[in-house]
């Protein structure tokens, strides 16, 4: 039986040094709501846990330059209860609200939801649709990466050994913008997405969609940014014809599997339904957000 070491460094530099020194046998501990369960079931057996909650900047929500920086160790409930953030990014908050129970959200972090690399993570499609960027610090310095490039497959990220996602950057918000995230689950909560859909769009003064990003979760090995689905909305009033093209583009982008959580056929059908409903909510929010 191997020993387990726990460290709670106060600085990012210490955290990176600990992780780099452990040669891949270390895990980052934020909320622990995924990590501890994986340890208890024996799926992973790390030798070192690096708790990042004691690093002050990782716990911050900072507004600046019209955008937001969310520390990787910010909990779901902190984000949900941040009134201004929730007003600007209701779709991201939609996703965060769906993570586990109230108690789980009190511990679970948005950074952890991303780095756990589940294809069905609820905040990830919403963040991708929002155009969020991950700030990453590692032994060789800092870098930034679009959120959709962080996860590469179930349980796998593009992070190198020793690298930590330190924060998520949300861009400035133009007028008449709205975002939304919807998922389908058989239960109303405490469930895992069979399909998740995030839509973020901006309208001009005439109500024409000028920018859009569409992301899907749980329909491939990782959450997907679907430019073809966004293209179906841009230049339209997000009318019935545009939504039909959106649904078709979304279905085309899916490569779902048959598993205990849903058949391929069901996921394909439901992906189209969810993305249209999410677009409808995003549209409604964009119309209301006219300054």
């Amino acid at each position: 039986m191997s020993e387990l070491r726990y460290e709670a460094p106060k600085t990012l530099a210490e955290a990176v040094a600990l992780l780099s020194g452990a040669k891949g046998r270390a895990r980052v501990l934020a909320g622990g709501t995924d990590l501890l369960i994986q340890m208890r079931t024996g799926r992973i057996q790390p030798e070192l846990l690096v708790d990042i909650k004691a690093v002050p900047e990782l716990g911050e929500i900072v507004a600046g330059n019209g955008g937001y920086r969310i520390g990787a160790a910010v909990t779901g409930m902190q984000l949900i209860e941040h009134a201004d953030f929730a007003k600007r990014w209701p779709g991201v908050v939609d996703g965060v609200r769906l993570i586990g129970s109230l108690q789980v959200k009190g511990r679970a972090t948005v950074g952890g939801n991303l780095c756990n690399a589940s294809p069905a993570a609820d905040s990830v499609p919403a963040l991708i649709a929002a155009g969020a960027v991950a700030r990453i610090v590692g032994p060789h310095g800092a870098r930034e990466a679009a959120v959709e490039t962080v996860v590469v497959g179930p349980g796998k990220t593009s992070l190198a050994v020793g690298e930590i996602v330190t924060s998520l950057l949300l861009p400035p918000r133009p007028l008449r913008s709205g975002d939304a995230y919807l998922r389908f689950t058989p239960r109303s909560e405490m469930d895992i997405a069979v399909v998740g859909a995030g839509v973020n769009l901006t309208l001009d003064a005439q109500g024409i969609c000028t920018q859009a990003r569409v992301a899907l979760g749980a329909v491939a090995s990782r959450a997907l940014l679907v430019p073809a689905a966004a293209a179906a909305l841009i230049g339209t009033k997000v009318d019935a014809a545009a939504l039909a093209r959106l649904a078709a583009a979304a279905r085309d982008a899916c490569s779902p599997i048959d598993d205990k959580r849903g058949s391929r056929e069901f996921r394909l059908r439901t992906a189209g339904v969810m993305v249209c409903r999410a677009a409808g909510i995003a549209l409604e929010r964009a119309r209301r957000n006219d300054g």
Partner: peptide, 15 residues
């Protein structure tokens, strides 16, 4: 394949 309450879905209060 589903020996747990995540994938064996008893109703929760909101159901």
């Amino acid at each position: 394949q589903n020996p747990g309450f995540l994938d064996y879905r008893i109703p929760v209060a909101s159901d």
